[in-house]
Design a protein around this nucleic acid. Sequence first.
DNA 1: ATGAAAGCGCTAACAA
DNA 2: TTGTTAGCGCTTTCAT
Lengths: 343, 343
Amino acid sequence: MNMRTVAHRAGVSSATVSRVINGSPLVNPKTAEHVRRVIEEMQFIPNPIATTLKYGWSRTYGLIIPDITNPFYPDFLHSFEELLVKIDHELMLATVGSSADALVHSIRRMLMRQVDGVVLLASEFDTRAVEPLLTRKVPVVTADRRRAQQGISDVAIDFEGGYLQAIAHLASLGHTDIAFVGGTRGLRTSMVRLTAFRRALEAHGIPVQQALLREGDYRVEGGEAAARSLLAQKERPSAIVTANDLTALGVVRELHRAGLHLPQEMSVVGLDDIAMSDLLFPPLTTIRIDRRQIAAACIEALEYTKANLSKQGKRFSVEATLVVRGTTAAPFRARRRSAPSGA
Amino acid sequence: MNMRTVAHRAGVSSATVSRVINGSPLVNPKTAEHVRRVIEEMQFIPNPIATTLKYGWSRTYGLIIPDITNPFYPDFLHSFEELLVKIDHELMLATVGSSADALVHSIRRMLMRQVDGVVLLASEFDTRAVEPLLTRKVPVVTADRRRAQQGISDVAIDFEGGYLQAIAHLASLGHTDIAFVGGTRGLRTSMVRLTAFRRALEAHGIPVQQALLREGDYRVEGGEAAARSLLAQKERPSAIVTANDLTALGVVRELHRAGLHLPQEMSVVGLDDIAMSDLLFPPLTTIRIDRRQIAAACIEALEYTKANLSKQGKRFSVEATLVVRGTTAAPFRARRRSAPSGA
DNA sequence: ATGAAAGCGCTAACAA
DNA sequence: TTGTTAGCGCTTTCAT
């Protein structure tokens, strides 16, 4: 069934049907009403594929994420999809892990489906992979690259603001030996988080202790390993700040295993505020990143970039807010092996 | 850029280009090779939208889920998407909560995009909502409706098998007062799970105690409330079996709050095996439902139904397997207020 | 082995 | 205010 069938039945031309469906004011209200009735009667559903073919756009945005299994992304996806429905767009989803090949293929598939824009949440990627998008004038939005270029906007999270709040909180409790368990070595976003943490410490006049810095992998295992290593050394921290919640969960788990009581014997701060944080015992103090805000920023970025393809993209920033729950408390001096050195 | 451009550049017709791209054997290998080179040179990407318009299919399957935020679904989605990529299909995702309206709209949007089939994981829905799909010969796959009809296949989880294993495990530990915290009242799947639990008890000769049955909501809160209520009554169970892991998490949380020691003072069994189960302390004993298997069954069901649209759909079953971890142990008699009644 | 051309459903420019 | 029609890119039938 198509518009011609409907038009025929309604005794008008397909152009009129098209106009009615698209709410053109150039139709006689009587005719319009009649056509609408026929459409209803015939249960006609228009085929936007034809329009896509004609104009080359699809009211579809692509979303590329590394791993839907990381609890951060379902939350993001939820908000993103909700917002897309509101602006009457479809979602084309691809998960690519950390495979450069998968990324290239996903982008190709999105191009084939004529997406109107792509949000690329994979933190690391070969710039050449997005070139086919740029060539074909498809706007791109990246996350946390902290850099815009022609046709590419970026949505960055204000890690520094978040860590600043966390350190303020810990410092006010009396902590000075604060460890950091970062992300996977070599990722840009890991470096960004580490730098933000260092700056936050410095802003509070707390010296950065090299011996309290660890790398993780944004997963539970990395947190466990780092905690194990921190506990093994003489100069233990009294608080551990992490690069994300899964890492924090691993830290907490390992701390439990070592028989430490939280938060009395060790404070822990996560980052993300995944649902699980609140289910943990004790519930995790963490820096919340509002997925809704990120999703909204991504869509705003998409539309901005689409409208300004010839210009440099724009940089968007999303704030991070400390949520104090149960894993932070004043340090338990008796247990500490070292006295605070500075400040 | 289109096939004509490529054809022109290669000195052939667009028909030949099409044949080369689709691997038709009717082209001279030399010509084919040359055309391939030109395609590569021009970075040509074909536009499958045109094919969709021409033939009415899209190599796209729709997936409708209630809530991506429930940790069961990201796992499922991950497997589903992986399998789709393998068969070179796209995913069109919609999350509909429990809104009947959202379901109707999602289905309409999928129809507009010419999906080749729809997997509908929303447990409850108005049959009229799927009629537009059936009318237009779009195959449908449901989950846990335990019923097939023309154009609709069903993928069911073998809850009974799962609960049978759980009860066998608990019974062998010496439990006889086994409570059940079910799903949301009125949902078909809640009834199915409850029935499966009852049958499993009966199969082991353990009488069903009405006073140990509770309703939940498939979320943490429901588990907490049910646990509170179970602890409040005189005849406490020694073990609690739940309708899903989130419920079990709520139960465990409430038990912790009440100062009970797990698993000594209460055994708990979940269902799903979400990632969090293993992170809990103690790690949750649960009935694993393999998302990969479900995803594979859904796709098999989709293809079967598509190929047999005129016939009754098929019913698929996916097994459930007990994973024994840390929340089950022999009952702690001293603490119990009632003696086992039967068996 | 290759090419010409029709037609999928829709929209908008143009005609009436 | 309404209708006619070209054309978006592709595949396939038919012709050569």
